[in-house]
Amino acid sequence: MQAEIRRRIAERVWRPGDLIPGEAELAAEFGCARATVNRALQGLAESGLLERRRKAGTRVALDPVRKATLEIPVTRLEVEASGCRYGFHILERRKLRAPVEGADLMGLARNASLLFMRGLHTADGTPFLYEARWVNLVAVPEFAKEDFREMSPNEWLVRNQPFTRGKISFLAVPASPEQADALKAEEGTALFAIERTTWNAETAVTHVRLAYRPGYRMSTEI
C-alpha cells in the first residue's frame, strides 16, 4: 500500500496540497483493515510525504521532506560485510573527571566521574576506526566490569544499553597525534569523524568521537 501511495505522489496523481481519500475509502480500495491503512499513512507522514491533522484529513505535503534514517551501527558487522576479519584493541582505559566540553555535551556536572576509553577497530589487522569514548557509569554500571575481549564497547552498548534519544554530528578533522598514531596516518591528515551522544530518558549514557581511516566513505539511503 505504501508503495502505491508513494507512486501516486511521485507521478502527481495526488499533487502537493491535495486531500487524499479517507482511511475507510482506502481500506475498501486496498481490501484491508482500516488500522492497516492508518499505520501506512502514519509511516508516510513520519517520512515527510503526508501531513495529517485530526478532523482535517490527510494531505500530500506541500514541501515533502525526505528523511535519512540513521542507526548506531555495529562496527564489527560493517567490517565483516566488506569481507574482512574484524578486530578491536583497547589503547587506554581509566576513570577520569569529565572534561568541561564533554560534561557540557552530555549534560553532566563538570566534576562527574566517567570511564574514558580509547580503542582501535581493525579490518584484516589494519586500522579501520579509532574511537575515544566517555561512558557514564551511573547510567550503565555493568560496563565497568567488561573486559571487551569478545565484544567491543560499541557492540556491547548497542546490545545491552537502551537509549531514548541521541545527537550526532559529522565533521572533517585533521588527525591528532593520537589518531594519526593509531590509524597509521600522517598527523594533520583529513579524517572523516562522527561525534555521537546518547541518553536514556534524561540520563547521559555515552559520548564518543569516531575517526575513520583516510579515504573512508559513509553512505546512507533516503
Rank of each mutant, 00 (worst) to 15 (best):
D18N: 10
A45Y: 00
I194H: 07
I168F: 00
R93M: 05
Y216F: 08
V140I: 06
F128S: 04
S113P: 01
E202I: 08
A109H: 07
T189D: 04
L191N: 03
A10S: 10
S113H: 05
M106Y: 11
G166H: 14
A204R: 04
Y130M: 04
D147P: 00
R52S: 09
H207T: 08
I5S: 04
T189M: 07
F192L: 15
R93E: 09
P127R: 13
V208W: 07
T69E: 07
R8V: 05
N200P: 03
A40D: 14
R7Q: 13
Y212C: 05
A193Q: 05
K184H: 14
E71F: 11
V74K: 06
L120Y: 09
L41F: 06
A201E: 14
V37W: 02
R7M: 06
G215D: 11
P162N: 08
A112Y: 00
N154R: 01
A175Q: 10
A10L: 08
L210E: 13
L120N: 06
E142H: 05
E23V: 12
K145P: 00
R85H: 03
E92S: 05
L105S: 07
C84M: 10
L114W: 15
E131R: 10
R8L: 08
G43N: 13
E25Y: 00
F88M: 07
R93H: 02
D104W: 00
R159S: 07
I20T: 03
E25V: 15
L120S: 04
A204T: 11
N136S: 09
E4I: 02
A172Y: 10
K167Y: 01
A40T: 12
L183S: 05
L91T: 02
